[in-house]
Amino acid sequence: MTARTTPSPGPAQALADALAAEYAAIWAYGVIGVHLAGTQRTAARAAEAAHRARRDTLVVQLSEAGGQVPADRAGYALPYPVTDRASALRLAVEIEHRAAGHWRAALAHTTGADRNRALAALTDCALRATRWRRAAGLTPVTVAFPGRPG
């Protein structure tokens, strides 16, 4: 199958954006986990580990491609104060939706194994968003187009 290989903004930028989203997710789960207990805290730790694994893979991938690997920031601005379980779950849903959006965008800029990896990442984010929505008591627990803006 043919694919246009260098549409703007380009594969390296798409993957760099995904990496930035993974950095932010890892940071956010540090905040989220503090406000959760029991199985939900365990799920937050597992989610954080999953985002770390995606981050590590992306760093290697971008390095090997010879491109610039964006650095993590020291901290991130939260969209609202996260002070309790409800706001922590809400942030978890948003973080996964955001990361899903960047992986979805990467699909158009990748082919072959790279695209399959982006799809796996998008799917994992969507699944975690669904589980967090369920934990937060939100209905429906699914969205029609995971990662689509708007």
Binding site: A100, L119, A126
Partner: peptide, 14 residues
């Protein structure tokens, strides 16, 4: 092709 990958990816994830 590139211009259809995102839609199909969202459907697979959904």
């Amino acid at each position: 092709p590139a211009d259809r990958a995102a839609l199909l990816g969202s459907i697979a994830a959904a």
